[in-house]
């Protein structure tokens, strides 16, 4: 049972990542696709941060007393990645709004149909 709890983070990371990928592939709606991308990203963040954890450790803010600190390096990488992730997903949302302005829909199949019509 404890072994399972120790492995649960890694296993859940796989399920989250595949879940995000599944949402990206199967949904036609662009907003939902962007949410899928965010889930995909989050799975990697959780994986990185769970690699940094040391059992019985504390947060990497130094104290006067002797203590075990968790690894701060993955925290730094993920901290910047979160802010960049939001900025890039905002860019994606801006693209979706422009697509809606030009095609009047944000469903993939309808945009394809419209494109085929205007090609002729």
């Amino acid at each position: 049972m404890t072994d399972f709890l120790y492995f649960w983070n890694h296993f859940a990371f796989i399920l989250l990542m595949v879940g995000g990928l599944f949402i990206i592939i199967t949904s036609q709606n662009y907003i939902k696709k962007i949410v899928g991308l965010a889930i995909f990203q989050t799975s990697v963040f959780v994986f990185f941060v769970s690699l940094a954890k040391i059992i019985d450790g504390t947060a990497p803010i130094l104290m006067k007393v002797e203590a075990i600190y968790s690894n701060p390096l993955p925290h730094v990488l993920i901290l910047t990645a979160i802010v960049v992730g939001v900025a890039t997903s905002a860019l994606g949302l801006a693209l979706v709004l422009q697509i809606y302005k030009n095609y009047n829909t944000i469903e993939e199949k309808e945009i394809e149909a419209e494109e085929l019509k205007s090609e002729r």
């Binding site: 963040f45 905002a90 949302l93 979706v96």
Partner: peptide
């Protein structure tokens, strides 16, 4: 998981600004 800085960022950026931008869109 002991990542207080990351949690702070996620709470401010992820559930604050990101949600507002999505609602606006």
């Amino acid at each position: 998981l002991d990542a207080v800085d990351v949690a702070f960022t996620e709470a401010a950026v992820g559930s604050g600004i990101s949600t507002i931008l999505m609602v606006m869109a």
